[in-house]
Nucleic acid binder design. Structure first.
Lengths: 232, 232
DNA sequence: GTGAATTTATGCTATATAACATATTTTGGA
DNA sequence: TCCAAAATATGTTATATAGCATAAATTCAC
């Protein structure tokens, strides 16, 4: 798709945000935003780098992840279209503390991040928008901490599957997840080793909770999965 | 101390925030703020409740905690004077998702939380202040997630001790932590069972990293502790 | 001050999960 | 199309940590 077309789509699908901007700010957004494409598995930014852009994911799927003890990867968040990301560090006056990578080819609108500061100073609706965004994110993050630390492997994996289904939706059959992750990514999301992700996934299949076909995962008994996810 | 004296102190020690307020807003703050005292171990608010106040801790120590799987408690954050807390839920239009409790007797300035919204709408400096606060908190929370999930028990406990020392400081000897926690609280902070907190603390003492005297903990070899904390 | 309740200490056992090994399947590039 | 590399599958072993039991020490209420 042509960049101009994508920018148009952004303005439309982000109307909740764009409508807060003044006419001048809207004009600035239009003239300063650029469109970039990233290939599957490409890194968008790395921990330690200076944040430059407010990213707006237009198509594709993105993961934000940390490299923890011994380089072990923990996926912190996953992004879907149309969502902002990559703004926290700048708003906290920090360099990035996460890495961002593409699960699949994706298209991203890049908005120079200083504009956000400028807009917040000119227009408190914009500032309040980010207050809400961050406040919600913080709640999610805290919730995630407890889930990852307290639930057992089966609970964590079941939760990850349900979360991915909620986030990215299903295929036409309304049962097969539309996102296909490697077992390794699934493990990084659920805080376990790849072996255990593979093993537990097999167990779920044996128990007729899911059907596996390569990386395609189909829900068979979603209620039981939810129960497993809740109990831990 | 008299409430009026405490409010005066708040205005002073929170000058970074108060200086952002307009004269009218400052007046509103003064006339609407109230002072409450809580006893050691008292609960300030609970998960599920509607947020009513922006809390500003003036004296004492406070924990924010969640009850996770099977009621198991995870301490998410600890507050020290003079810090705001209890605002996230309101800013996200949610009820509280955490509980707040007093480690020790404490004095808290309670500011009706709708004022925050009013001030943010009137004055974008206030909104930007909370943007920064939330952005920093979110970074801390993500970091904490990885530390709690990836580090081993010794690493988590060492980290908790160092964190508490950094937060609440030392006694006059410059080596004894000024906060005294039960082993249970220490465990809830470090995501482990009470037995393991006790055991690991004993091990640290045996290894001459700390000295234990009841709930008093004195650092003997803080460098080694930092190393343990880092390696995990 | 005394007894009951709580907290701390320590040992032993059970269990969840990581780590390792090896085989099989799938994928991607030349 | 074929080969090498990567991903998946599965079994076995090692280990970190939870769980339980019991005793000692401390705290608290009366």
């Amino acid at each position: 798709m042509k960049p101009s077309k994508i920018i148009e789509e952004m303005l439309e699908r982000l109307s909740e945000f764009v409508s807060l901007l003044t006419p001048e700010q809207k004009q600035e957004l239009k003239s300063e935003v650029s469109v970039e494409r990233f290939k599957k598995n490409e890194v968008l930014y790395r921990e330690g780098e200076v944040p430059q852009y407010l990213h707006c994911l237009m198509s594709g799927k993105v993961k934000l992840y940390k490299e923890g003890v011994g380089g072990r990867i923990q996926i912190m968040r996953v992004m879907k279209p149309v969502e902002f990301f990559g703004y926290r560090a700048y708003l906290a006056n920090q360099n990035y503390v996460n890495n961002a990578g593409a699960f699949e080819n994706c298209t991203i609108c890049m908005i120079p991040i200083e504009l956000v500061n400028k807009w917040m100073e000119e227009n408190n609706k914009v500032a309040i928008y980010f207050v809400r965004l961050l406040a919600v994110e913080l709640g999610v993050s805290d919730e995630r901490t407890v889930n990852l630390t307290q639930k057992h492997i089966r609970g964590r994996l079941a939760e990850a599957l349900i979360f991915l289904a909620d986030t990215y939706g299903m295929e036409e059959d309304n049962a097969t997840m539309s996102i296909c992750l490697s077992r390794e990514d699934l493990a990084s999301l659920s805080n376990m080793t790849t072996s255990n992700a593979i093993r537990t996934l097999s167990a779920f299949q044996t128990e007729q909770l899911i059907e596996i076909n390569g990386r395609k995962i189909k829900f068979v008994d979603i209620e039981s999965l939810k129960k497993i996810s809740k109990i831990g």
